[in-house]
Design a binder for these strands. Structure first.
Length: 396
DNA sequence: AAGAATGTCAACCGCGACTCT
DNA sequence: TAGAGTCGCGGTTGACATTCT
């Protein structure tokens, strides 16, 4: 247990990843997909265990990751979801496209908990601190372990306790149309809590850009209308997502939960950065897609040839630098972190002495990886998402 | 300017669940 | 059915960055 079995068999590297390792991993996955993670390091020529490769890919290298500061909408959503789900970070992350469970967990522990306490709210119970009898620091003991319990029955919020407890599908989309979805519970909880005088800035999820895509039957879209032809989005520091193209057409089934569209498209931080090439976005509905796929990258890496997305891309000539290449930062490139030059965040690793100056680059293509996604849908979000796919209602 | 304190986040660890033989 | 291999999750750690004194 614990350390992956393969880690014992050979001397494997640990710790931070070098650009070379990242390059190898990205190249391999982009070209072949990850397949069996345990075989990835061998095939990719890495002295890492498969587990480490998986983690690196999921948390850092995936081109669809959104990095950078969380928007207010995202923060609200995390709080709402945490109130309903507890420390089930993977399920919370499933509602925040482009965010990883690790990222959300870190953000929760470093920021949100503090904010909630400052507002007099126990981050573990989401109740006023007075009611929790000063137990706010014990969230990893009873309350949080309970709320984060894998027993779905413990997750049912008080406001719906009288209801029969349905299986809480990780996807939030019940396979049984008659069974209320997780969103249903979340919304119920939030709505009811919204009436509490002690609640702080809690709004119904719909108001916080959380759009439950289905009604209680899981069949009919509800919530604000969704843009018919939404742009592909990256945040200021990120990578793409065409929220709807992928959501509705299965372009990136493993990375875009069904609920996410409104968050992406409404976030003030978001700006269009990318659009998929028509051959990678399912042609079924990509009429409005341009042929450009914008990614951002680090000129440092480009210059050094360490990490060349370009080689994966059909139209290399469309790379655009907003700043001088030497100002680019490799980790930002790897992150996809963007990079608006006005961004004041200092995200990303500052390893290997690379400058922190941020910039952005747009790239066209990245077909290989996406095609691979279609051929071999990965498990980035695990079983839950696979369960979700067929259950996704047709939208738009 | 320097050291301490605090914050952030990538990565690891340990475990349970799942799959395959 | 049991056991091995693998995957995925949540908790935790530690390095690095930033802020404070």
């Amino acid at each position: 247990m614990g350390r992956h079995a393969c880690c014992y068999k050979q001397k494997l590297r640990k710790g931070l990843w070098s650009p070379e390792e990242d390059e190898k991993l990205v190249r391999h996955i982009t070209k072949y997909g990850h397949g069996c993670w345990s075989s990835v390091p061998k095939l990719a020529g890495l002295q890492r265990c498969g587990k480490s490769c998986r983690l690196r890919w999921i948390n850092y290298l995936r081109p669809d990751l959104k990095r950078g500061t969380f928007s207010q909408q995202e923060e609200d959503l995390i709080i709402d979801l945490h109130a309903a789900l507890g420390n089930r970070w993977s399920q919370i992350a499933a509602q925040l496209p482009g965010r990883t469970d690790n990222e959300i967990k870190n953000y929760w522990n470093s920021c949100i908990k503090k904010k909630l306490r400052q507002r007099g709210i126990d981050p573990s119970t989401h109740k006023p601190l007075g009611e929790t009898d000063g137990r706010e620091d014990r969230e990893t003991t009873n309350s949080e372990k309970t709320s984060g319990s894998r027993n779905p029955q413990l997750l049912a919020p008080a406001s719906v306790e009288a209801e029969p407890t349905p299986p809480l599908m990780g996807t939030g989309v019940s396979e049984d149309p008659a069974i209320p979805t997780k969103e249903f519970f979340v919304d119920q909880r939030v709505s009811s809590r919204h009436e509490s005088p002690n609640s702080t800035r809690y709004a119904p999820l719909q108001q916080s850009n959380y759009v439950a895509c289905c009604d209680a039957n899981g069949t009919r879209p509800i919530g604000p209308p969704i843009q018919p032809t939404p742009p592909l989005w990256f945040t200021h520091d990120t990578r793409l997502l065409n929220a709807d193209a992928e959501l509705c057409h299965g372009m990136l089934p493993s990375v875009v939960p069904s609920i996410s569209t409104s968050i992406l498209s409404s976030s003030a931080e978001l700006k269009p950065m990318i659009s998929l090439p028509p051959d990678s976005a399912n042609s079924a509905n990509s009429a409005d897609s341009s042929n450009e796929l914008e990614l951002q990258s680090s000129g440092t890496l480009f210059d050094s040839g360490i990490f060349q997305w370009l080689e994966l891309l059909p139209n290399k000539g469309q790379i655009q630098f907003d700043t001088e290449p030497e100002d680019l930062k490799w980790s930002e490139y790897l992150n996809g972190t963007i990079a608006s030059t006005t961004s004041n965040q200092s995200q990303g690793q500052s390893l290997f002495g690379v400058t922190k100056e941020e910039s952005q680059v747009s790239v066209t293509g990245l077909n290989s990886w996406y095609e691979e996604q279609q051929l071999h849908p990965p498990d980035l979000y695990g079983k839950d998402l696979h369960q979700r796919i067929p259950a996704q209602p047709e939208r738009i």
